[in-house]
Simulated assay, not measured.
Amino acid sequence: MMGDDGAGPLLAEMCAAAPQGEWIVFDGGSAPERDVAAIRELRPQRLMIVDATDMGLDPGEIRIIDPDDIAEMFLMTTHNMPLNYLVDQLKEDIGDVIFVGIQPDIVGFYYPMTPNIKAAVETIYSRLAGWEGSGGFLPL
């Protein structure tokens, strides 16, 4: 519904249809803070958050963002709660929090997702089963 901002939900859909590796998937949508209790209950060793994130890059570029830098970077978000608050809450119980940003092209009501963003989501999806470290993506 929000064009390229649907990158995370698209990845969740793909994983629900054909899981990759041993990831447990939550579709946080516009209010990922609703899933904090369920995630904490699972006590995962690793948590990956994937979101369309305006980083000033070319559309579809993927970067690993240090969770400690999210607030300082003032990443633009369409979520109800700033992502740095969410990450700070989760880091209390999870050792490894990975934030994967996909540079969107068009974020607006009723726009379709652009091909570059779909391709970026497919790239992340293809690496999930064998994910190690940064998944082979560059840091921001």
Rank of each mutant, 00 (worst) to 15 (best):
Ile117Val: 12
Gly135Asp: 05
Thr78Ser: 10
Val25Asn: 04
Thr53Tyr: 03
Ala129Leu: 11
Glu92Leu: 15
Val107Tyr: 01
Tyr110Phe: 13
Thr114Gly: 09
Ile24Trp: 04
Ala7Tyr: 03
Ile94Cys: 05
Leu138Trp: 12
Ile39Lys: 02
Val100Ile: 15
Leu57His: 15
Pro9Arg: 12
Leu128Tyr: 03
Phe109Gln: 07
Leu10His: 00
Ala7Pro: 06
Tyr85Lys: 14
Gln89Thr: 09
Glu13Ala: 11
Met55Lys: 08
Asp4Leu: 13
Leu90Met: 12
Thr78Lys: 01
Glu41Gly: 03
Ile39Cys: 15
Ala71Gln: 12
Met14Phe: 01
Val97Gln: 06
Asp54Trp: 03
Leu47Asp: 01
Gln45Phe: 08
Pro44Ser: 06
Leu11Phe: 05
Gly21Ala: 11
Ser126Val: 07
Asp54Thr: 07
Arg40Lys: 08
Lys91Ile: 00
Leu10Gly: 05
Ala12Ile: 14
Phe74Trp: 10
Ala12Asn: 09
Asn80Tyr: 08
Asp54Gly: 04
Asn84Val: 00
Gly135Ala: 15
Glu41Met: 12
Ile102Gly: 10
Met113His: 05
Ala129Trp: 14
Val121Lys: 01
Met48Ser: 13
Ala119Trp: 03
Lys91Arg: 14
Leu140Ser: 13
Val107His: 02
Gly3Pro: 10
Cys15Tyr: 09
Ile106Thr: 11
Met76Pro: 04
Val121Asp: 06
Asp88Ser: 11
Ile98Lys: 15
Ile39Glu: 02
Pro112Val: 00
Ala37Tyr: 01
Lys91Gln: 04
Glu132Ala: 14
Met55Thr: 11
Val25Trp: 04
Phe137Asn: 00
Thr114Phe: 02
Pro112His: 06
Ile65Glu: 00
Val97Ile: 13
Glu72Leu: 10
Ala52Trp: 02
Leu83Ser: 13
Ile49Cys: 06
Lys91Pro: 01
Phe74Thr: 01
Gly8Leu: 07
Gly135His: 08
Asn116Thr: 06
Asp5Phe: 01
Ala129Val: 12
Tyr125Arg: 11
Thr78Val: 13
Asp88Val: 05
Gly135Asn: 06
Ile106Arg: 14
Ala120Asp: 01
Asp105Ala: 14
Ala38His: 05
Asp69Tyr: 12
Leu57Val: 13
Gly28Tyr: 01
Gly8Lys: 03
Ala38Ile: 03
Ala120Ile: 04
Val87Ser: 11
Arg127Trp: 09
Met73Leu: 08
Ala52Glu: 03
Asp4Phe: 00
Ala12Glu: 10
Pro112Thr: 12
Ala129His: 04
Phe74Arg: 14
Leu83Pro: 02
Gly101Val: 07
Val100Cys: 14
Ala12Leu: 00
Trp131Val: 05
Ala129Ser: 15
Thr114Asp: 09
Cys15Ala: 13
Ala120Gly: 04
Pro104Met: 03
Ile102Leu: 06
Glu41Thr: 09
